[in-house]
């Protein structure tokens, strides 16, 4: 099971800040988004927004990162501190 995390408005849309998710044959972030879309169209659509970035095991990803069931995969909307 991969650990999914959702920050900011994505947490509200997902209805949870974190969730375990069996990846099965899913091995990239883009395939994960498609699999989430199958279960939850609203969340899948929100994750598809180009402003949403993905952090795998606390490292920012670029492009379409590879993922496994041992990973912690965080989706983050635009940040707003200060």
């Amino acid at each position: 099971m991969a650990r999914l995390m959702f920050f900011g408005k994505l947490g509200d849309i997902a209805g949870a800040r974190a969730r375990d998710f069996p990846l099965n044959n899913v091995d990239t972030v883009s395939a994960l988004k498609a699999a989430i879309f199958e279960n939850d169209n609203g969340l899948g659509e929100a994750l598809g927004d180009p402003s949403v970035r993905c952090i795998v095991n606390e490292e920012m990803t670029r492009g379409d990162a590879a993922i496994t069931d041992d990973d912690e995969i965080a989706f983050i909307p635009p940040v707003s501190g200060g």
Partner: peptide, 19 residues
Amino acid sequence: EAMFWKKELRSDGAEWIAP
């Protein structure tokens, strides 16, 4: 760039704020 997310709570509801 700092990793924070801010939700504004108002009399007319709540809204996540982008820069």
